[in-house]
């Protein structure tokens, strides 16, 4: 990555986010960092970031739940979602759709549908032919897909950072103390509301619909699921499609939130979301959402109160600590040996 220079952009989204968070804080250097307003502001920022991580983490945990493998190309799916959203915004701007709610809706749908298609193809190409093969094969093919997708976007879109002018400016000023303004931007509201709604809808799918039941059945015993007439291949495809659609929403939100993306953002965000899924308990859906929010909060608070340079170290230390001391995560069940 060194050739790209300008280390500030390295890591894309989350790094940019850290800078933005810092700006909110540094504007008020005089203000004691331990007061309530500062805390509140960081809480808002952390929840926003955490929601985004949570959306990506769901994709990891769902795929793990159903086929017992980590989809290492999922971060790239998220990156592609971000690019599709960016391109859709630019196209809409060109054709003159400027009413923001409509533009948002169109971009949301376009990004979800197209990214879901990428997720479907990913499963078809990298996973289905290797069903029943040793786990390592699928792991390698997923990493291969990840490298392929990164290079594909780099070649197709160029390696430079892509900017997007703010689409939704403004926000609420919640309270002001000694010149420190606690802000909740409209965009943050949208992100928090949308991620909450998606997670709720998603939990409904898993718990209440027959699609969700089929997914849980496949996760527990694929052969048996097939014996009661469940199309296992289709269920797995659906899982990838849903995971990709949620990652697309995360990608779109990041594009809007940070205003810059590049072909490399999938790597760091992917690993962070993976950390979130592990923290919550890999395979557990509420765990992925909780883990996402926690990782977002940890990262933001670390940046706000300690050093921003080490925020990734903080997030990944969590991964190490969880793997050592609580491998099943916060909400995960202990691994039960399959007979």
């Amino acid at each position: 990555m060194g050739w790209r220079g300008g280390g500030g952009a390295c890591g894309g989204g989350p790094a940019g986010g850290g800078m933005r968070l810092r700006r909110v804080g540094s504007r008020n250097k005089r203000v004691d960092q331990r007061n309530l307003e500062y805390f509140l502001q960081q809480l808002i920022n952390g929840l926003t970031l955490g929601g985004i991580y949570g959306l990506i983490a769901i994709g990891y945990t769902m795929v793990y739940g159903i086929i017992g493998m980590i989809n290492f190309a999922h971060g790239e799916i998220y990156m592609i979602g971000a690019f599709i959203a960016l391109i859709a915004f630019l196209v809409l701007g060109l054709v003159g759709v400027t009413w923001v709610p409509l533009a948002l809706l169109i971009v949301l749908v376009v990004a979800m549908v197209l990214t879901a298609f990428y997720g479907w193809v990913l499963e078809r190409v990298a996973y289905r032919p290797l069903r029943g093969a040793p786990r390592l094969s699928a792991l390698i093919s997923a990493i291969g897909m990840s490298i392929f997708l990164q290079n594909y976007v780099q070649l197709a879109q160029g390696a430079r950072v892509k900017p997007l002018a703010p689409v939704i400016p403004g926000g609420f000023s919640l309270l002001e103390v000694d010149g420190f303004i606690v802000q909740l931007s409209y965009l943050q509201v949208i992100i928090i509301v949308l991620t909450t709604a998606l997670m709720a809808g998603f939990s409904l799918i898993i718990n209440r619909t027959s699609l969700g039941r089929a997914q849980r059945a496949c996760a527990q015993d694929m052969k048996m699921a097939s014996l009661i007439g469940i199309d296992v291949d289709r269920t797995i495809s659906t899982t990838f499609v849903i995971g990709a659609a949620l990652a697309a929403v995360a990608g779109m939100m990041v594009t809007l939130y940070y205003g810059v993306i590049d072909f490399y953002i999938g790597f760091l965000a992917g690993i962070k979301a993976f950390t979130a899924a592990v923290l919550g308990g890999i395979g557990s859906l509420p765990g992925a959402m909780l883990g996402g929010v926690l990782i977002g909060l940890i990262e933001v608070f670390w940046s706000a109160y300690f050093t921003i340079e080490y925020k990734d170290v903080a997030a990944f230390s969590i991964l190490v600590l969880v793997l050592i001391f609580r491998p099943t995560g916060l909400l995960g069940r202990p691994e039960v040996e399959k007979v």
Binding site: T209, S210, L211, R213, A214, R216, A217, Q220, D221, K223, M224, A225, I228, G229, I230
Partner: peptide
């Protein structure tokens, strides 16, 4: 080979997956 993590009722509902998928 039951779906041992699901409830008794769910085990019977999931077996009717195809009819439910069509209806839904």
């Amino acid at each position: 080979r039951l779906f041992s993590g699901m409830s008794v009722l769910e085990n019977l509902i999931v077996a009717q997956h195809n009819a439910l998928m069509r209806a839904s």
